[in-house]
């Protein structure tokens, strides 16, 4: 299996509503895959099923051939290898930017204090926030907070990073700085699975686009194909609506 991540037949139901039904796809090392689709179609739930922040009802997930969904899988160890970037950042509010990035190194990786500090500072520099190490989340803009949360994920040396609408909670003028960091990561070869409505990013960075609707994958393919000649009428309609809304992309 040359695939870094394999998702097979994942289903999730909340009460009567089937949020995900039989979602399968895979991700190669170094690949950037973007998931698009209308709100409420289970994109975020899918990301959370991958590291089991949400427990899938059915289906299996493998990371580098190791089954994440196995009953006795060491889920904490697996999660430490999968970065997760949340829509609303979820930085630890009582800790400085540096401590936010350092906490996982100290408490999960059991790294020494000096080494962890150096690593955390390096990651903050990588997202352009070397000067904000001592700032608390409430003292940072949304864009800066999201970059700290990316640094927090990067510090763990993840095999892949899951981005759950990383720019949806940001003011328009702050979106660029976060996308900038993500573009840089993609070019550096980080494996990324990104849920987003930023079609510009999807077009220019994604190796492959997945269009999801009502809990199923409708269509997937390289961006040039999906944007120019979508195979499915639902994909075409979604792209048309998005381009009307944002005046770009499709």
């Amino acid at each position: 299996m040359g695939q870094l991540l394999v998702v097979e037949g994942v289903c999730k139901r909340y009460g009567a509503e089937e949020v995900l039904c039989g979602v399968s796809f895979s991700l190669e090392k170094g690949e950037t895959k973007v998931i698009i689709g209308p709100s409420g179609t289970g994109k975020s739930t899918l990301l959370r099923c991958i590291n089991r922040l949400t427990e899938p009802d059915r289906g299996r997930v493998w990371l580098e051939g190791m089954e994440v969904t196995a009953p006795h899988a060491n889920i904490n160890k697996i999660r430490s290898q999968i970065g997760f970037v949340f829509q609303d950042f979820n930085l630890f509010t009582h800790l400085t930017a540096l401590d936010n990035v350092r906490l996982g190194l100290l408490k999960v990786k059991k790294m020494g204090r000096k080494e962890a500090t150096e690593r955390a500072q390096a990651e903050l520099a990588r997202v352009g926030l070397a000067g904000k190490a001592d700032a608390y989340p409430a003292q940072l803009s949304g864009g800066q907070q999201q970059r700290v949360s990316i640094a927090r994920a990067l510090a763990m040396d993840p095999k892949l990073i899951l981005f759950d609408e990383p720019t949806s909670a940001l003011d328009p003028e702050l979106i660029g700085e976060v996308l900038g960091v993500m573009v840089k990561l993609a070019h550096e070869g980080m494996t990324m699975l990104v849920v987003t409505h930023e079609m510009g990013f999807a077009r220019s960075v994604a190796d492959e686009i997945v269009f999801m609707e009502r809990g199923v994958i409708v269509e997937q393919g390289p961006p040039e194909k999906l944007f120019r000649a979508p195979a499915h009428p639902r994909t075409a309609e979604f792209l048309r609506k998005i381009s009307e809304l944002y005046g770009e992309a499709a």
Partner: peptide, 9 residues
């Protein structure tokens, strides 16, 4: 959620 996503128990 954020703490668990880092692999914390």
């Amino acid at each position: 959620l954020a703490a668990r996503s880092l692999g914390m128990t």
